[in-house]
């Protein structure tokens, strides 16, 4: 199956930009269902550490994945406000907990680069490619890899 960001016929792709820690990430807009403020998270005992809990989003049960934890960026500061990106994966709803959401960028596919060999392994694990923007690096998230827990968060 081809994911949206692999689409070749379009000359550019739109990305929803988010930050986790200080790092800028881009999610192909086709994969993003909504952006919401997670409320009333239900803790899931015995779950992998990156599973922050479950919540009710308009009648659907959404499993929240803490991106900081997934990326080994350290613990989330409880006082810090957080946002969630709603995505669907194999018919199930997931919410990726991130720090902030930025603007939607339309970037030419020609500027996309494959991930460099020296990319931080924590990022390399979940990145599909990168863009060198004016003053920073944007990592394009491979959503399927993010949710493939086997692709170890703490292990590796």
């Amino acid at each position: 199956m081809m994911s949206a960001h692999d689409t070749v016929e379009a000359e550019s792709t739109e990305y929803v930009t988010v930050t986790v820690g200080d790092q800028l990430f881009g999610l192909p807009i086709g994969r993003v269902q909504d952006v919401f403020v997670p409320e009333r998270l239900t803790h899931v005992p015995l779950a992998p550490p990156e599973v922050a809990g479950m919540l009710n989003l308009r009648g659907r049960v959404v499993t929240a994945i803490d991106m900081r934890c997934r990326l080994d960026f350290g613990r989330r500061d409880a006082s810090q406000p957080m946002l969630a990106i709603g995505i669907e994966f194999k018919g199930e709803s997931y919410g990726l907990l991130i720090d902030t959401v930025g603007e939607v960028l339309k970037l030419p596919d020609s500027a996309r680069e494959s991930k460099p060999a020296n990319l931080d392994p924590r990022l390399a694990r979940v990145a599909s490619s990168i863009y060198r923007l004016e003053n920073q690096l944007m990592v394009v998230l491979d959503v399927d890899r993010v949710l493939d827990m086997q692709n170890g968060a703490v292990a590796a």
Binding site: P48, V61, T63, E92, Y94, L147
Partner: peptide
């Protein structure tokens, strides 16, 4: 339960 959590026998 989400497939990611199905390995937990308790639920």
């Amino acid at each position: 339960i989400a497939s990611k959590l199905r390995h937990i026998d308790m639920f």
